[in-house]
Design a binder for these strands. Structure first.
Length: 426
RNA sequence: GGAGAGGUGGCCGAGUGGCUUAAGGCGGCACCCUGCUAAGGUGUUGGGGGCGUUUGCCCCUCGUGGGUUCGAAUCCCACCCUCUCCGCCA
């Protein structure tokens, strides 16, 4: 969430920055926060005056009782004061709850270099490799995958519904190979610490990274009284790993890489990308998360994006880097680069990675702070996350880009040691 | 799942309703003393918030949230977490 004090003191700047997202409600929400904050502070002044009086008088009551004197009058007076305090406290709690509710809905302020507008204002920053041109013999992965016996969509649907693919044989091994290649690269070459987190988290963690309350419909919640949610991305457990902590001067930066399954209802995307495995309810992903000093987060985003790109380069897959416009970014993000890989079978650019600098937005929700120096005041860290990479679309790109006219797939060299073979044949 | 014990400041640890504005110790920091070292002395030492912003004043915070009371670390309720034993189990 945003800093309440910044909203109070730099109201217009905050509104202007948020306006780049194009959400018509947000200026009104800011005004509501301002009004509630004024009310809150007024009540605080009233109630704290009374509390100071109560504290003082309580001592006097104690003194009188010790001296064996009568304190009935004071006690009676204080009973009245306490009632008023209770009333003010209820007002205060209500105002604070309303402010909290609004702050949890207001998205992060985009950084200056982020273009205003919706998806159509996304900017292509750079590209790598040559997108393969169309050829009549090229097949989309849903045909190729079935012919190669690596993908079984029908049986997956029978088990769990559409959007739950089954990978078989070399398809299953390809998943494992890609995960290992990615995790190894980020650990050995990019300096990330490998983490295996829980796949179920509390609502608090989902709130920390911004999935709740807004995107509740998009997540799977476990039945029962557990308040447990299936993670839609490893960003949730990895970012919240140090939630509620104050890190020391030497603890930053922290760089985590984790491989996890991800679960998404895709509630808002019904009917889109229904063929193949472009959009599914369960998929695997290798995710990088970084906790950085505020002054380092800008450079860290570039570096993180480069780390994700490195995987595509290693696999020899053509891609482009998109700077997302404010309106296309997730609410938690202040700046996002998407990596889009070319799919010659589907003949589309497919998003395989989203790398975001969430500045202090998630840190404030999840309460992740650090001290610059021993004894210094705690400050919020900056959090970043980026896929490195999402598996299904990487699998699509590998299969479709490396397919041969004879129907086989000649695997990229980097995968040979992980696959134990160099081709997938029908 | 059953039974029990417990969560106090950076750490250890005292504290069954007002003498705690959380004792004492350790650690950290500052200063003093000692011609080195060791030891000693004095003070200080969490987080959040409000008002004023120059020194400051005040409120909240003893796992979390409620409740009882003039007053709660202390009593009551719910939840979270840790530990021990039993059962079950990959």
């Amino acid at each position: 969430m945003l800093d309440l004090k910044r909203i109070r003191f730099e109201t217009d700047a905050v509104k202007q920055e948020l306006a780049k997202r194009g959400d018509p409600d947000v200026a009104g929400q800011i005004d509501q926060v301002i009004a509630l904050d004024a009310e809150r502070r007024a009540v605080i002044q009233d109630v704290e005056g009374l509390k100071a009086r109560r504290n003082q008088t309580s001592k006097e009551i104690a003194d009188r009782k010790k001296a064996g004197e009568d304190a009935g009058e004071l006690i009676a007076a204080m009973k009245e004061v306490s009632d008023r305090i209770g009333e003010f406290d209820r007002q205060l709690t209500a105002a604070e709850a309303q402010i909290e509710e609004l702050l949890l809905l207001i998205p992060n302020t985009p950084l200056p270099e982020v273009p205003a507008g919706d998806e159509s204002a996304n900017e292509s920053i750079r590209s790598w490799g040559e997108p393969l041109s169309a050829a009549p013999w090229r097949k989309p992965h849903w045909e190729l995958g079935v012919e190669l016996s690596v993908l079984d969509l029908e049986r997956g649907a029978r088990l769990s519904g559409s959007g739950f693919p089954v990978y078989t044989g070399l398809g299953a091994r390809l998943q494992r190979a890609l995960v290992n290649l990615m995790v190894d690269t980020h650990v050995r070459e990019h300096g990330y610490r490998e983490v295996t987190p829980p796949y179920l988290v509390r609502g608090q963690a989902m709130r920390g990274t911004g999935q709740l309350p807004k995107l509740a419909d998009d997540a799977y919640q476990v039945a029962g009284d557990d308040d447990l949610w299936l993670i839609p991305t490893a960003e949730v457990p990895l970012t919240n790993l140090h939630g509620g902590e104050v890190l020391g001067p030497d603890d930053l930066p922290r760089r985590f890489v984790g491989y996890t399954p991800c679960f998404r209802r895709e509630a808002g995307a019904a009917g889109r990308d229904t063929r193949g495995i472009i959009r599914v309810h369960q998929f695997d992903k290798v995710e990088m998360v970084r906790l950085e000093r505020p002054e380092d987060s800008g450079a860290a985003l570039d570096e993180l994006t480069g780390h994700a790109e490195r995987i595509l380069q290693t696999l020899g897959l053509a891609y482009r880097v998109m700077l997302l416009a404010a309106g296309d970014m997730a609410g938690s993000s202040a700046m996002t680069y998407d990596l889009e890989v070319w799919s010659p079978g589907v003949e589309r650019w497919l998003e395989v990675s989203s790398c975001s600098n969430c500045t202090d937005y998630q840190a404030r929700r999840a309460d992740i702070r650090f001290r610059r120096e021993a004894g210094g005041k705690p400050e919020y860290v900056h959090t970043l996350n980026g896929s490195g990479l999402a598996l299904p679309r990487t699998v699509i790109a590998v299969l479709e880009n490396y397919q041969r006219e004879d129907g086989s797939v000649e695997l990229p060299e980097a995968l040979h040691p992980y696959m134990g073979c160099s081709r997938i044949e029908p």
